[in-house]
Design a protein around this nucleic acid. Structure first.
Lengths: 143, 143
DNA sequence: AGGGGGATTAGACAGAGTCCAGATTTTGGT
DNA sequence: ACCAAAATCTGGACTCTGTCTAATCCCCCT
């Protein structure tokens, strides 16, 4: 998933597979997320897509990201109180969160084993398990 | 931790133990959190504290909660993109998050076992591990 | 060419949280 | 008790993320 290069055609294909009508803006937004392969905030995406001169409005970026979420093309990561990160990697996986820098790093799902999940409340089902390991510069390495 | 009754004196004692100067407002805010024993948002706390007539400003509620966090009297739970929840339980534990209702429920730490933590990036140390199990009404039980 | 529906837009709006400068309370020394 | 200094609290303006709305645009179909 790391920073693979996606052609515009490949992105169109990807959108189609997820039943998303591939418009210009949607292609650009998906392209930004998938070729970067990184966790990006809506703001960062807005900036990326409008690199040289404005092409896509704020409203469209938000609409599109929510559409992508709904169609399960991407995932959201809620870890920073200030903003949501969007993650092009929908495989089950977890995250390191650097509390000093705000940087997010993937942890492969099978690098962590969670045993003995507690019983769910009656009539409930699991939608997903998020594990966030908050890390920081070790004391010995700090000023 | 569930909804124990705290006297004002007990709260003052608690604050002192955490090296927090116990002012009126701080006592009221801590009292609200600890006798409820629940996850509350800043907004909910503001409303609770100002029950009958205004006593504490929004700025003070935010300042105080951040002070409590710093002094590790409480913990924050980041799970809802719209607001932060403050948790009076600082024992290691995890959460069920009902995505339909926004309700948070504790999971005792030893009800979950995480084995084989991946290696941390060099020079980093763990600050904490948050596990959030997102749950919803099971299909069979939905409309 | 004309019409219809989905997509996009700018800008107003909403809500959480921060900042600031002035007012108030607390503290400590005498 | 009194005063000054320090700490705390306050309202209100402000910022930032995200949503809403009404108008416009674009594209396909006939």
């Amino acid at each position: 998933m790391r920073s693979r290069q996606y052609s515009r055609e490949a992105v169109v294909e990807l959108l189609r597979r997820h039943h998303i009508n591939p418009t210009h803006q949607r292609i650009e937004i998906a392209h930004a997320l998938f070729t970067r392969g990184e966790h990006l905030s809506a703001d960062q995406i807005l900036a990326l897509v409008n690199g040289r001169h404005p092409e896509t409005s704020k409203a469209t970026v938000y609409n599109t990201l929510n559409l992508f979420l709904e169609k399960k093309l991407i995932r959201e990561v809620i870890v920073d109180p200030n903003r949501v990160f969007y993650d092009p990697n929908t495989e089950p996986h977890h995250h390191f969160y650097n509390v000093d820098t705000g940087e997010l790093t993937d942890i492969e799902a099978d690098a962590v084993r969670v045993s003995s999940l507690p019983p769910l409340p009656a009539g409930m089902e699991t939608e997903g398990v998020d594990i966030i390991i908050r890390i920081r510069q070790a004391r010995a390495h700090r000023g």
